[in-house]
Amino acid sequence: MNHQILELKVKLANKLADVSGDIIKKHFRQSNLPSETKINEISSIVTIADRLAENVMVDLIKKECPDDGIIREEGENIDSKNGHAWVLDPIDGTSSFVKGLPIFGTLIGLVDLDNNLPLLGCVNQPILQERCLGIRGKATTFNQQTINNPYVNNYDYPLKEACLTSTTPLMFITPRQQEIASRLQKVCSRTAFGGDCYNYVSLAMGWTAMPMIVLESDLKYYDFCALIPIIEGVGGMITDWQGNALNSHSTEVLAASNPNLHQQALNIILNQ
């Protein structure tokens, strides 16, 4: 993708964040908000805000980039005519949204389908007015300022002193996943649950008192696609549990503040 086209896509990503954010703000902390739990999915809630925010993004993409495909959480996907697709999660962290806690985000990714390359990723938090933007090959920004990951060069930091985070222990479904999660929890002296996409934002920003490891499973493509350029753009590492590049079929994600910590965690996962 040439520079001029990429600039147009970045502008569209910001427009998508703006229009979805306007809808989400109107529904945040509203009593008796229509919602439901998705069938056969643990702790997966969807509200009218999710659907309206997604629909307004889809309509805008159809208008401005009609040849682009769309991979979405709530509605039917739209096939790509040019090899590019937007990957949308209108509210990642709906459980926080329905509790009135501003630690959710709208995830907006753009992927080169032919080469499995996430080209850009945006996490927008409309209540706090915080926006992370990652562009492949460039430094990640937070509210248009370049992020400085304070842990990117901490190559001597031991895994046992890092903070291990996962959104919920319920996401480890199989005995294998539960055993791996337990193994890492025993190595890391600090474990925290909750956070959804904000775990990855916190990792990228270096907000934490120590480096972070994020271990998650039972995910969909829209849960992590937008996060890949953001993590990589600060020198962090994000892969599947085998150390392979993430793709649309991945369900298990391992992210770390730097490649050395990632390798230490991977060694535990692979029992090496």
Rank of each mutant, 00 (worst) to 15 (best):
K9A: 11
K15C: 12
K15E: 15
A17T: 05
D18N: 08
G21E: 10
I24K: 06
K26N: 05
S31E: 14
S35L: 12
E41N: 14
E41F: 15
S43W: 13
S44F: 15
V46S: 04
I48Q: 14
A53I: 06
A53V: 07
N55T: 13
K63Q: 15
E64R: 13
C65F: 14
D67K: 07
D79Q: 00
S80W: 01
K81Q: 01
A85W: 02
I91K: 04
S95L: 14
S95D: 09
K99C: 01
K99N: 01
F104N: 12
V111A: 01
V111E: 01
D114Q: 12
N116W: 04
R136Y: 15
G137C: 13
G137I: 09
T140D: 00
T140N: 03
T140E: 00
N143Y: 00
Q144R: 10
N153V: 09
Y155P: 02
Y157G: 09
P158G: 09
E161D: 13
T165W: 15
T167G: 07
T168N: 05
P169E: 06
F172H: 02
I173V: 11
T174K: 14
R176L: 09
Q185M: 14
Q185G: 14
S189K: 04
A192H: 10
F193K: 06
F193E: 03
G194C: 06
D196R: 06
D196H: 11
W207M: 07
A209E: 12
M212E: 11
Y221C: 00
I228H: 04
I231F: 09
E232G: 14
G235K: 02
M237I: 08
W241Y: 14
S248A: 14
N260Y: 12
N260S: 15
H262D: 13
L270N: 12
